[in-house]
């Protein structure tokens, strides 16, 4: 009778220890991905921008037949998204570059992450870094930028823009 009581108690204590131990182990695992995930997101965003062409993108704002295309702001469907941003920057339309980037990265970057994008050492996105943005950036433990060089031609071999340094920063 008494033995059963002790065995039950024993089992409960051991279960408690096992649960506590598992929680400690798994919490250590769940903390790590947020750091690597941010740099992977930055790399993924840059890879997506530099390898996807305007003509291959189905987006009602930046794709062929979209708002920017119909307004004549985008004329070359063979430009990659990054080249188009470089062209906007070259033409002095950083506003277009910003809205363009915002549109194409919405499905890529989860809400808990922040994105900063620079071309030629000038911040293109966001428009201005507010206090909250800076505080979040300064408090992040890891911040690995992803960089590419962007250049491209405008018209039939008449003009070449760039080469510019393009840099994407993502953090949580």
């Amino acid at each position: 009778m008494k033995k059963g009581y002790f065995f039950t108690l024993d089992a409960m204590i051991s279960m408690g220890i096992l649960v506590l131990g598992s929680m400690l182990i798994f919490s250590a695992y769940t903390r790590l991905p947020s750091q690597t995930q941010a740099s992977e997101l930055a790399q993924g965003t840059m890879e997506f921008l530099s390898s996807t062409k305007i003509k291959d993108l189905n987006n009602e704002y930046v794709g062929i037949g979209g708002i920017l295309w119909n307004a004549g702001n985008i004329t070359n469907g063979d430009n990659t998204l990054l080249q188009q941003m470089g062209q906007f920057y070259y033409e002095g339309n950083t506003g277009n570059a910003r809205v363009f980037l915002q549109n194409v990265t919405v499905p890529l970057i989860p809400g808990q992450f922040r994105l900063e994008f620079w071309i030629d050492s000038r911040m293109v996105y966001p428009k201005e870094a507010d206090r909250q943005h800076n505080a979040s950036k300064n408090s992040t433990t890891i911040l690995i930028p992803s960089k590419k060089i962007v250049y491209g031609t405008i018209g039939e071999s008449a003009e070449l823009f760039g080469p510019y340094e393009a840099e994407a920063l993502v953090w949580q």
């Binding site: 002790f6 024993d10 204590i13 051991s14 220890i17």
Partner: peptide, 22 residues
């Protein structure tokens, strides 16, 4: 027995924590 069991569980838990690959 209960103390031995407790000690054994604690040691296993400590070992698991210590050698969990980071």
């Amino acid at each position: 027995a209960i103390f031995f069991t407790l000690i054994a569980i604690s040691l296993v838990a400590a070992m698991a924590l210590l050698y969990t690959p980071n």
